[in-house]
Design a protein around this nucleic acid. Structure first.
Length: 585
RNA sequence: GCGUUCGUAGCUCAGCUGGAUAGAGCGACGGACUUCGAAUCCGUAGGUCGGGGGUUCGACUCCCUCCGGACGCACCA
């Protein structure tokens, strides 16, 4: 589809250049990159649209006249297969359906439909999730995770070499709080003793710190003192810290396994929180930074229209920013990347703006290719999630409850026997529900997560798309068993040129362009939207047209091939979105 | 107060980078199972795109301003 589009752009450019020359004007401006193409709003208006407005001024003609003239020119010229037609101020192309269908079907049948080489040779590091080791993952992390994982997969699909990394926040005063609390109330018990998932076990003590504060007014200070001991590698503190961290990280990894999230490399703040100091001092030497009167090292951010920012305290200790400077440089040393993507909530926009500026100021070439994939908050229908009010949605509990509801639904429909392991399917439906819901929203915007809506099997949801995939799979299973009219039939592209079939062919054909755009914009929501469009187009087609049982063998074989192509796109696209594809549900 | 950002149908979201009558889903109302699984499909109602200016042949999209929400504005991470 992209090649076809590009070919037509070139043809249109040549046509415009012709007209320019005839008018004695400079034809140089009519390059194919100057030609805007779009998709007409309705299929009966054609397959590719070229608006003529922009040429109105140089040609001193009305757009409709240009379109007419151009249509004539192209009709006489050597163009790709298809028919150009002037429709108002647009020159629309009606593709040759038979040859296009044949081409599309052939390319879907090949390996890895949707892969492109648009990012070939690019090394991209992407950081996401970044959990704290004092509590389990919550709904906000799930959005982060699905964005990070999907974006990684989409970048890879476009040919990039991707390294997924997780920066675990395993140090700091908040970690000490759960440790203190455990010392007070834990009694040496382990997660196994209580039969709890270990990250929840740790998280519960973090919450209990509130009780401790009431019981011991010195609790906050004690946490600070413990942090000092930790930094001094006090053996007792380190011992407990290691034990609790293992619990927390172990539990969090279980959740990643469950949701299909993975990392190529883990970084732990405890190991790198001191880095960055040298780089800041280097920057001080070469004049990027300056020493303030109080002895702290700072940067002047007036080029950004901001105030100054401290990078090293007057006592020489480092801060969050220092650490991130060091870490970025360190990472580039570990794995020289062309781009680095940080999937971090939008509350840290200022931080990254400054960080990127600092790294550029330090003269790193790659600093211009750092990207903050900033995403909005996940709110609930009742409002914002608040830690203090206990309204934070726990990731594990959410998945569990969605799974249960899905299972009940399966039982209510009496589908258990038809699908083998009902619990496993229910789990995959729950995952599909959450991941689709989170991936479908534009990343940068805040969103409302409604658990009930996400699981609704009607409408724009993950389970709906999974269902359509299952229905196609069911048809194909039947074909393979020799049911229906297809046996002995031949796939013939001319049987895929009707309006109904063409609707599906077009959407299948558009998929690779969608993946490419999603990659260049770091936006999985584009893929999600296309999955829904395709699934619902299939559903309509399926409702209106017999597939397995249609009149003759050739038609049945052709339609089954078309529907199989739809299935391939669903399999590939859902894969990019971390949504399990289901053969039956 | 300053900065960033968002405001599209009752609700949740799209809107192809400035173009063809602003689109979906949910909810509401009304329809469709003797035929490939109805977890489905079809139809109806519902919008002065937060308000007001401006740029443009053309603005939901760009600029200004006001209103409203979110998030930032640490020598915390």
């Amino acid at each position: 589809m992209k090649q076809i589009r590009e070919a037509w752009k070139t043809a249109v450019a040549a046509g415009i250049a012709d007209i320019l020359r005839e008018k004695g004007l400079d034809a140089g401006m009519a390059t194919s990159s100057a030609i805007v193409s779009e998709t007409p709003p309705k299929p009966d208006m054609g397959d590719i649209g070229f608006p003529m407005f922009a040429w109105s001024k140089p040609l001193r003609m009305g757009p409709p006249q240009i379109a007419l003239l151009l249509a004539d020119k192209l009709a006489a010229a050597d163009t790709p297969a298809g028919t150009p037609k002037a429709i108002g101020p647009y020159l629309n192309v009606f593709l040759d359906r038979v040859s296009t269908s044949a081409e599309v079907m052939a390319s879907v049948a090949g390996e890895g439909y949707g892969k492109s080489s648009s990012l070939a040779g690019t090394r991209i590091m992407i950081e996401f999730s970044s959990p704290n080791t004092n509590k389990p993952l919550h709904l906000g992390h799930l959005r982060n995770d699905v964005l990070g994982e999907s974006t990684s997969r989409i970048l890879k699909e476009n040919g990039a070499e991707v390294l997924k990394i997780n920066l675990v926040n395993d140090r700091g005063v908040h970690i000490c709080k759960s440790m203190l609390s455990y010392m007070a109330y834990g009694g040496g018990r382990t997660p196994e003793d209580e039969g709890k998932k270990p990250d929840h076990f740790v998280g519960d003590y973090y919450v209990k710190f509130n009780d401790l504060k009431k019981a011991d007014p010195q609790a906050e200070e004690k946490a600070q003192e413990m942090l000092v001991k930790w930094e001094a590698s006090d053996p007792e503190v380190m011992d407990l810290w290691k034990r609790m961290n293992e619990w927390a990280v172990g539990g969090i990894r279980k959740t990643y396994e469950r949701t299909g999230i993975s990392f190529d490399k883990y970084y732990f703040e405890s190991q790198i929180y001191l880095t960055g100091k040298e780089e800041v001092l280097k920057g001080l030497e070469n004049g990027a930074f300056f020493k303030a009167e109080d002895g702290s090292v700072r940067i002047d951010l007036s080029p950004l229209g901001l105030e100054e920012k401290v990078l090293l305290r007057k006592d020489g200790t480092s801060i969050y920013m220092t650490q991130d400077i060091g870490l970025a440089i360190h990472r580039h040393h570990d794995w020289p990347f062309d781009r680095l993507v940080y999937v971090v909530a939008n509350e840290q926009q200022y931080h990254f703006k400054v960080l990127f500026h600092i790294l550029e100021r330090l003269g790193y070439e790659w600093a211009r290719n750092l990207f903050h994939l900033s995403y909005g908050m996940v709110n609930l229908p009742e409002g914002r999630m608040k830690t203090r009010e206990g309204t934070v949605v726990d990731a594990d509990a959410l998945l569990e409850s969605l799974k249960e509801i899905a299972l009940e639904e399966i039982q209510a429909k009496g589908r258990e026997e038809a699908m083998g392991d009902a619990a496993e399917i229910a789990e995959k439906i729950a995952l599909g529900a959450v991941h689709y819901y989170l991936a479908q929203a534009t990343p940068s915007k805040d969103m409302v997560f409604n658990p009930k809506d996400s699981l609704s099997f009607n409408g724009d949801t993950g389970p709906y798309i999974q269902y359509m995939g299952a229905r196609i799979s069911s048809l194909l299973r039947k074909r393979d068993k020799g049911e229906g009219k297809a046996p002995g039939g031949t796939v013939r592209p001319e049987l895929l040129a009707g309006d109904a079939e063409w609707e599906l062919v077009r959407r299948v054909a558009q998929y690779p362009e969608v993946v490419e755009q999603a990659g260049s914009e770091y936006n999985p929501a584009l893929v999600a939207a296309h999955m829904y469009d395709l699934a619902s187009a299939f559903s309509r087609y399926y409702h209106d047209n017999p597939i397995l049982n249609c009149e003759d063998a050739d038609t049945a074989a052709s339609r089954l091939a078309l529907v199989a192509a739809v299935r391939t796109v669903l399999v590939n696209g859902l894969g990019l979105l971390c949504i399990p594809f289901l053969e039956a549900m």
